Computed example of a mutant assay.
Amino acid sequence: MNWREFKSLTESEWYDCDLYEGVCGYQIQPETRWNSGLTHNEIDSLQKKLGFSVPSMYRTFLSELNGFDQDCVDFQAETAPEIYGRICYQYPEDLENTKWLLEEIEQNRKYVNEALQLEGFPFDDIEGYIALYGHRALVVFKNKSLSPVISIVGTDVGVYGKSLEEYWKKELCVNSLG
């Protein structure tokens, strides 16, 4: 995947995107941009903090993109105020903020393993997880050519993308990239 092209395409989509009041769930604000990527040394340092090496595709992604430059907005209900929050995680800043998702994955490991097995992934070869966006996480295997992304809310677990590339295209509705 050409992550620079992906960045350009998504940022142009967000430049004048609409927000939908009354719709629950975080929405990307107009004029949102991706943060600059990490240097090779910063990625190496992140891997040390994680305790495992990241897949090559994620390493390339991180060298170009690292979360959004502004929080997303959620209109909870007509009577509730807007809530802003970081939904697209950036590293290393969000290592602490994403522990909840890693704990949820561990608590529901049986369901995570079942979801991965159904999609043909070797769940006994997992090194760790990296929170990406909301309740979605990259599964990191010993085989670094694998990069599936799971979606997890309690025991409701599914493979949301069989690769990091497939995941981001689906998450951000990018169909025009080959």
Rank of each mutant, 00 (worst) to 15 (best):
W3Q: 06
R4I: 11
E5P: 00
E5S: 10
F6D: 07
F6C: 00
F6M: 09
S8C: 08
T10I: 05
T10S: 13
S12G: 00
S12E: 14
W14T: 01
W14A: 10
D18F: 01
L19V: 14
L19Q: 07
L19S: 09
Y20S: 04
E21M: 09
V23Q: 13
C24K: 14
Y26E: 01
Q27C: 07
Q27H: 12
Q29G: 04
Q29R: 15
R33D: 02
L38I: 10
T39A: 09
N41G: 08
N41A: 11
E42W: 01
E42A: 15
D44K: 13
L46V: 09
Q47H: 00
Q47F: 01
K48R: 13
K48E: 14
K49V: 04
K49F: 01
K49S: 14
G51D: 05
S53I: 01
V54H: 02
S56F: 04
T60R: 13
T60Q: 12
F61T: 03
L62W: 01
L62D: 01
S63N: 08
S63E: 02
S63Q: 06
E64T: 14
F68D: 02
F68L: 13
D71H: 02
D74M: 09
F75V: 04
F75M: 08
Q76K: 15
A77S: 15
E78V: 07
E78M: 10
T79I: 10
T79L: 04
A80K: 13
A80Y: 11
A80E: 15
A80L: 10
Y84F: 15
G85F: 08
R86K: 15
I87L: 12
I87P: 06
Q90I: 04
Q90N: 12
E93F: 02
D94V: 07
T98P: 00
T98M: 11
K99I: 03
L102K: 15
L102C: 08
E104Y: 02
I105M: 06
E106W: 06
E106N: 12
Q107A: 11
N108G: 10
R109I: 08
Y111R: 07
N113Y: 08
N113A: 11
E114K: 12
A115R: 08
A115V: 01
L116C: 02
L118S: 07
E119R: 14
G120N: 02
G120Y: 03
F121I: 06
E127N: 13
Y129H: 10
I130G: 07
A131I: 05
L132D: 06
L132S: 06
Y133E: 14
G134F: 03
L138S: 06
L138I: 12
V140P: 03
F141P: 13
F141V: 09
K142V: 12
K142F: 05
K142C: 11
K142H: 14
L146A: 00
S147P: 00
I150M: 07
S151I: 01
V153C: 07
V153Y: 11
T155I: 03
T155P: 00
D156A: 10
D156P: 02
D156L: 09
V157G: 08
G158Q: 13
Y160A: 15
K162R: 15
S163D: 09
S163Q: 03
E165I: 09
E165S: 12
E165V: 11
E165M: 03
E166C: 03
K170M: 10
L172D: 07
N175P: 00
S176K: 15
L177Y: 03
G178M: 05
